[in-house]
């Protein structure tokens, strides 16, 4: 599929407190792709992302979610952070308007248990942080988008 001929942009959200990841996501889609094909919104916290997602007009195609993001002003433990992310996934998956939104969880946690847990909640994919090369991120998004649209 030639992604450039589609009328609407591919809407992507990244939620991550890691500055490098945010800068990478802001750049990689125009470097390796086409700035007119992707609409990338970047958030540093779940609260910020929720505000944007609640706006009717922006229904993302894909959300990349770091499983562990601290609250902006809080020193939560790891379990709390994971719990909040899980709630976020659960809430989104329960709403009809996000039925086509794919949620890709990523983390530097290699334990299988987390992968299984988020999968049970309805997450559509799980990747290990730092395992995708910049260009592979773009290819990964294209692939998800294409298979989503085929279905």
């Amino acid at each position: 599929m030639d992604l450039r001929i589609k009328k609407e942009k591919i809407k992507i959200i990244l939620i991550d407190d890691d500055e490098i990841m945010r800068a990478l996501f802001r750049n990689v889609f125009w470097i390796h792709g086409d700035k007119d094909v992707y609409d990338v919104k970047i958030f540093v916290s779940l609260e910020d992302a929720k505000k944007q997602i609640d706006k009717e007009s922006f229904i993302p195609d894909i959300i990349f979610l770091d499983i562990m993001i601290p609250l902006l002003q809080s020193g939560d433990c790891m379990e709390e952070e994971i719990k909040r992310s899980k709630c976020f996934i659960e809430k989104l998956k329960s709403e009809y308007k996000y039925k086509n939104t794919k949620i890709i969880v990523y983390s530097d946690q290699k334990e299988k248990s987390i992968k299984e847990e988020v999968s049970k909640l309805g997450a559509d994919g799980y990747i290990i942080k730092g395992n995708l090369m910049p260009k592979e991120i773009v290819n990964f998004v294209n692939k998800i988008y294409e298979s989503n649209n085929k279905n």
Partner: peptide, 22 residues
């Protein structure tokens, strides 16, 4: 302009990522 994006509008961090990946 690189792929129609004006690089003078990038932050230092974004510019650093561009120099590493672009």
């Amino acid at each position: 302009l690189i792929n129609d994006v004006d690089i003078s509008g990038l932050t230092n961090q974004e510019l650093a990522v561009f120099r590493q990946t672009g």
